[in-house]
Design a protein around this nucleic acid. Structure first.
Lengths: 110, 110
DNA sequence: TGATTTTATCGTAATATTGCAATGTATTTA
DNA sequence: TAAATACATTGCAATATTACGATAAAATCA
């Protein structure tokens, strides 16, 4: 017990949940927002900007990389991270689709 | 250790993360999608539709209710749940704002 | 080459999440 | 009133997440 029963749900539902999970931490939101406005940045920059330990930032970057939201390029000693446009637009489309499905008022009770 | 350092982040970042966390489970995505198309439903209906135990569904409904995405109305023996339009639009606006911040190509590396 | 810089990974501790059986509570029905 | 129905809550077990110090790996600099 204690494990999500993924088999009960559709691929879309599981994917959407997986993307939401990656966004479900303020540090990862902050990293994404940083990348959205500054185009690229590296681990050290984020450590200074966010105030979390280097290992912690590295772990968050890894999770963002795992789902494909960001990608890193080795640039000398450091690694430059940036948003992956295709993946970002794919995720954006999925959330847009979810939010689109509501035409208020749709509830006769509330 | 092991606790999210909310104090390091902005209110918006923490709120966005909190909303994303509630969406970060396929069962809650499924419940929302069900409510979006059928307007209302109760616990028992969802138990039949999703295939999770009654206690589990109740717990997921509680989390959705806690952040205000849904609201329940006692209707005889059962409870009718529906989307909270204001909250839903608020969350929609926050995600839209996040996704809006990207104008590809913004990265000179990738 | 040796020291420095930057990042990733490992190990560990604290806490959170997921799922469900069992039980409690409230309303309706017979 | 007693049984039935629907839902919430509690308690527990399994697993996941968060954070960071310590350490490893790779590239650069003196």
């Amino acid at each position: 017990m204690g494990v999500t029963k993924s088999a009960l749900f559709s691929t879309t539902q599981n994917e959407l949940a997986a993307y939401a999970r990656v966004l479900a931490h303020p540090a990862r939101i902050a990293i994404i927002q940083f990348l959205l406005k500054s185009e690229t940045c590296c681990n050290t920059t984020l450590v200074g900007d966010l105030g979390l330990a280097q290992a912690t930032i590295s772990q968050h970057l890894k999770e963002l990389k795992n789902v494909g939201i960001i990608q890193g390029t080795v640039e000398g000693v450091s690694v430059n991270y940036c948003i992956n446009p295709e993946k970002w637009n794919e995720i954006k489309a999925m959330f847009t689709e979810l939010f689109k499905g509501f035409n208020p008022p749709n509830c006769s009770i509330c």
